[in-house]
Amino acid sequence: MDSTVISDLLVGGILRGGMYVLMAMGLSLVFGVMRIPNFAHGEFYMLGAYFSYFACTLGGFPPAIAIVLAGIGGFVCGALMEKVTFYPLRKRSRGDWIMNSFLVTAGLSFILQNLAQALVGTDFKGVPQYWGGSINFAGLSVSTDRIVGFLIAMASVAIFWLFLKKTRTGNAIRAVSEHETGAMLMGIELNKIHTLTFALSSMLAAIAGAALLSIIPAYPTMGLQPLYKSWFVVILVGLGNIQATIIGGFLVGVIEAVSSFSLGAMWQDVVSLSIIILVLLVKPTGLFGKKMKV
């Protein structure tokens, strides 16, 4: 391997990884705060892509606005779904929360996917380009859309991170993920936090889908790949550990870039999975995971 190939792989891996970070962060957050293993996370990515597509084509908005609108759309859909499904589920739940909520998300995923198929059809809905052109970067020519998409992802991650760390609401979310009863005793309204958390997580996924629209067009089942990729990340680093998903996302991105270059695209999942299984065998809680309280 000469050095351009290496830098090529590295850049490709990091660009990919940025999206995984964005996706995985929301997934990890929802599990950390609400104990929901979200199977419908990819569907919000799909929604984001469609939102952006319609904002661009029907609405005629410029790309940046379209992506913001998609994010807002994801937020609203997420909030709605939380209120309609998880809220009553939590009210009525008598044990088995993780499994039951998992199945509810599976149901959501089924519904969203097939609604999209019924309403918009199965064909690809994409835009040829957002900004177009390419940028020379470390001796490589990378398309502007990729770079900007990556920057959007990083900006969203950074803003989200600051929100969690610096704002009152962000602190409340983290408090709930640390200790639910404790947070409740401190006067935090759990219901609001849950809705907000799910909405934010959906928003991040929607932004990811929207930012990539010119590279990956929208179609009903497009959420599957990002879904299991982000699960790769989250399981690799440890569930509920939001900070570590940043490292994990890039790690998985690079691993995939390397394995698909050296073994072919069909092997990249096999390689990622084998690595995850090896990691879990040595460290069942993931690379950076804490042991959950007994």
């Binding site: 499904t85 009553p88 909520s101 199945l103 509810v104 149901g107 089924f110």
Partner: peptide, 14 residues
């Protein structure tokens, strides 16, 4: 049909 499948699953779970 699959939308109904999904709805059914959610309703049963809740």
């Amino acid at each position: 049909k699959y939308v109904i499948y999904g709805l059914l699953l959610i309703l049963v779970m809740i």
